[in-house]
Structures are given as structure tokens and as C-alpha cells.
């Protein structure tokens, strides 16, 4: 009897040890964020970020597990060990650094833009006064519109003195197309995507400001961050970075790792 128990215990120990050895990298994504991370026609996760991560994992011999997260509680689930990073067109914010998270270098330059209907009569940011403007909850656009050093002053001119927050970009786009709101504040690539999907939409030339995408890790995971950064730099060198960007229709001018290489 005792022997069996001991054997069982040894087996369990061996099993847990082998589980711990097989490194799994859990990538936290917003699964509704094309072209960075989304479900493709075949029901598989795809996108620029997803494929970059896949390549980095291959390089390091990690098993990749993709974890779709709730964007407005992404930091909570990260702390909760549900995933090891947030890598999904995420804007690097000072507030994250202040809260102790480890942030990677930027790998993409982004611009916050205003998407509106072609016949809305809105041509400049000043035209947004008194208009209903939507933004997705938990995005950098929302943060920007609530930041005194950002665009809070502009947000105060909107109808109701603030933007309307929505759950995801599909709802934002539908609201805009169906006349529920007059404009949507959104990242440039997503705006291009929505404009293409719904038609009859334009992006204002005047932008709300630029920012950069990066990857967020838990406090203390500096080593993991360094390893991932190393992998990304290799992908920049061997041309995968550029090739993937072209595959997903990203503008070459925003690939900051290409033109920063000299520095």
C-alpha cells in the first residue's frame, strides 16, 4: 500500500515537473483587433502581432498559447497569471510603467484619428463640437480623451462633455454607420479597416496625436521581456518583420524598428 502511494506521488511529481519544464508562452490578445490580432476566416487566430509572437516562440522553443482577454480588464488578468504578456496593438502608456509593469520597446508607430461619415460635414477637430463621439473602453483613444495633457479639452466640446464608451470596435462602427454617433476616435489601422468594411466613411486629416505600440509584461518579468525583444530584433534583421507588415497591409512608414535600427 505504502509503495503504491509513494509510486503515485513520484508520478505526480514527475508529471508536474515535466509540465513546468515545457515552457508555454501565454500571449494575451484582444481577439477583435484586426489587423493585429483577430480570428481569421478559418477560425484561427491571425494578425501581425500573432504571427510575430509565433515566430518569437518558435525561436525560443516555447509552446504558444493564445489567450483572448477582456481589453478593459487586461492588466488584472495579466497580474492574475492568466497570460504572460499583453501583445495586441497595445499603446505604451506612462501610467503602466508607473504601476510597475515591464514594457518592451516600441515596434509600431500609431496615430489616433477621427473616423466619420463622408457626408457628416465634419472636416476638422473643431467641427466635433456638440457632436456625439464614440470610443472603445480601455483603448488609448479613451485614455487620450480623458487626459488633461492629451485631448481632454477637445472631449469637453463633445455632446455631453465626454465621449461615449463602447464595448468593441464593431459596435463603434455599427453605431457610426447607423447614425447613432457622429464620429469614432480610433487607432489609424483600425479606422482604415472599419472604413473599408462599412464604406462611405472618411478619416479626418487632422489627427489626435501619435503614440507607439509595445508589449506589456508583469512586474519583475524583465528577463522574459529581454528575450522577446531579442527575438523581435532577429525578426527585423531577417526581414520577417517587414514581410509580415506587408502581408497585413501595414504602412512601412510606421514600422519604427526599421528606421530606428541605425540608432
Amino acid at each position: 500500500m505504502k509503495k503504491t502511494v509513494a509510486l503515485l506521488l513520484a508520478l505526480i511529481l514527475a508529471l508536474t515537473a515535466s509540465l513546468a519544464l515545457a515552457d508555454t508562452f501565454k500571449m494575451g490578445i484582444d481577439a477583435e483587433y484586426p489587423p493585429f490580432s483577430y480570428l481569421d476566416e478559418n477560425g484561427e487566430y491571425a494578425g501581425f502581432d500573432v504571427e510575430m509572437c509565433k515566430a518569437v516562440c518558435e525561436m525560443n522553443g516555447w509552446d504558444l498559447e493564445i489567450v483572448p482577454v477582456n481589453w478593459d480588464t487586461k492588466l488584472i488578468s495579466l497580474d492574475n497569471m492568466e497570460h504572460d504578456c499583453i501583445w495586441s496593438g497595445m499603446t505604451l502608456l506612462d501610467s503602466m510603467k508607473e504601476a510597475g509593469y515591464v514594457l518592451s520597446f516600441a515596434y509600431y508607430d500609431n496615430t489616433q484619428v477621427v473616423l466619420t461619415k463622408a457626408d457628416s460635414g465634419i472636416a476638422t477637430l473643431a467641427d466635433l463640437a456638440g457632436k456625439r463621439v464614440a470610443v472603445q473602453l480601455g483603448t488609448s483613444g479613451e485614455a487620450l480623451l480623458g487626459d488633461e495633457e492629451g485631448q481632454l479639452a477637445l472631449a469637453k466640446t463633445f455632446e455631453g462633455g465626454a465621449p461615449v464608451t463602447m464595448e468593441n470596435f464593431t459596435v463603434c462602427g455599427t453605431e457610426l454607420a447607423a447614425g447613432g454617433v457622429d464620429a469614432v476616435v480610433v487607432d489609424l489601422p483600425v479606422a482604415q479597416n472599419l472604413a473599408e468594411k462599412f464604406g462611405g466613411m472618411v478619416i479626418l486629416e487632422e489627427t489626435l496625436g501619435s503614440e507607439q505600440y509595445g508589449i506589456c509584461f508583469r512586474n519583475g518579468d524583465d528577463e522574459l521581456c529581454a528575450k522577446v525583444q531579442e527575438g523581435i530584433l532577429k525578426l527585423v534583421e531577417d526581414g520577417t518583420y517587414l514581410a509580415l507588415a506587408q502581408k497585413y497591409g501595414l504602412d512601412e512608414n510606421v514600422l519604427c524598428l526599421l528606421y530606428n535600427k541605425a540608432e
Binding site: 478593459d72 480588464t73 473602453l137 480623458g146 461615449v164 464608451t165 453605431e175
Partner: peptide, 15 residues
């Protein structure tokens, strides 16, 4: 996108 109490709570939690 109806801005009831919990929505506002989520916005604050986030920011």
C-alpha cells in the same frame, strides 16, 4: 453603449 453605473465603474477601473 448605454452608460449606466457599471459602465462608468469600468471606465474608472480602467483609467
Amino acid at each position: 453603449a448605454y452608460q449606466e453605473m457599471f459602465t462608468i465603474g469600468k471606465q474608472i477601473a480602467n483609467s
